[in-house]
């Protein structure tokens, strides 16, 4: 148990510190790296409570895909200009009241959720659900997700699809004057149309139209 506690406090300490550093570090790329560290330590916490499937999915989806895209975008932006805007400049001070309102709202929501969990523990009683404790948690997630919650699951899939199509529609534009290569054309070239044998006269050269 002691080892378990030590690892729990280690990972939660890293998670909290890196979450603070995401907002506090001046370099945006460093923020993304701290975000990645945060994701990794949270997935370690998931694994520690026995939710190994969630932990791995967290690693694959958030760290392996989402954070890579974050990093991509942040690196492409001109980072140097935004370096010194932390609270000091006039442009960012306008965001502080809005940020405060949103963060208080999130804080109260968290208190309500945790309070509900604490004072009405039978709300999420594991014994009432159809969880089979002999199965690995990948199996149990599958058995619940694809039977009881299949409609919710499919609706969330549809929402993601709509978001994907929307993103493509928003960024898609027909560009003029861009040279693209046609694979069919490249593959189907024959020797007879690509190569031409010409007799070259000395000192005169030859003119080939292309």
């Amino acid at each position: 148990m002691i080892a378990h506690a030590i690892f729990f406090y280690l990972f939660s300490f890293i998670a909290i510190v890196s979450a603070v550093m995401v907002t506090a570090s001046k370099n945006t790329v460093h923020s993304v790296f701290f975000l990645i560290l945060d994701f990794i330590s949270i997935s370690c916490l998931f694994i520690m409570i026995g939710a190994e499937f969630l932990g791995m999915i967290m690693l694959i989806v958030y760290v392996g895909a989402v954070a890579v895209l974050f990093l991509f975008v942040v690196m492409m932006l001109n980072v140097a200009q935004q370096k010194n805007q932390w609270f000091a400049s006039e442009a960012s001070s306008g965001h502080i009241p809005v940020g405060l309102i949103i963060s208080t709202l999130i804080f109260f929501e968290l208190i309500i959720v945790i309070g509900g969990w604490k004072y009405k523990p039978d709300l999420f009683d594991l014994n009432n659900s159809m969880t089979n404790f002999n199965l690995s948690n990948t199996h149990s997630i599958g058995q619940i997700l694809y039977t009881d919650y299949i409609h919710v699951f499919q609706i969330s899939g549809m929402i993601l699809l709509v978001a994907m199509v929307g993103a493509i529609v928003l960024t898609f534009r027909k560009r003029e004057g861009v040279k693209t290569q046609s694979y069919l054309k490249q593959i189907s070239r024959e020797r007879s149309e690509g190569v031409q044998i010409v007799d070259v006269e000395t000192n005169k050269g030859v003119k080939i139209d292309d």
Partner: peptide
């Protein structure tokens, strides 16, 4: 239990 997911996760972290 999730060995193959672990392998996949680690190989996808390699990009960092």
């Amino acid at each position: 239990n999730v060995g193959i997911l672990y392998l996949f996760a680690v190989s996808s972290l390699g990009v960092y």
